[in-house]
């Protein structure tokens, strides 16, 4: 199958591998440690593990845009803030 039209690059492939691996990880976690029923976090939302992953990724996308718009490259700061945001979401939200 010729996939040249999709114009793959290693960084974008890594991004999607990361996203799909994260989704798979949620499945494995649920299988290993059941109990992924919704819980109420500090934002007053009932979230499952999948919801928290979605919020982490969506939030990270906005952190990326915000960092790039205000600070520009390099993106280490973005990575740190996005990691902190994701940890916060999984821990508290």
């Amino acid at each position: 199958m010729d996939l040249t039209w999709m114009a793959w690059t290693w960084p974008t492939a890594a991004l999607f591998v990361f996203i799909f691996a994260s989704i798979a990880l949620m499945g494995v976690l649920e299988w290993k440690f059941p109990g992924g029923a919704p819980r109420r976090g500090i934002l007053g939302l009932d979230t499952t593990r999948g919801d928290r992953l979605f919020l982490s990724l969506l939030g990270s996308a906005f952190i990326f845009l915000g960092w790039l718009g205000l600070m520009g490259t390099p993106l280490w700061g973005f990575l740190a803030i996005a990691a902190a945001w994701s940890a916060f979401v999984f821990w508290k939200v």
């Binding site: 040249t4 039209w5 114009a7 690059t9 960084p11 974008t12 999607f16």
Partner: peptide
């Protein structure tokens, strides 16, 4: 996925792409 791939590259057609980053 294709849009994500396009967004980090430059192209002049003919399926030739050049890395552009962010």
């Amino acid at each position: 996925m294709t849009v994500v791939n396009y967004s980090v590259q430059e192209t002049f057609g003919n399926n030739l792409f050049f890395w552009e980053g962010v």
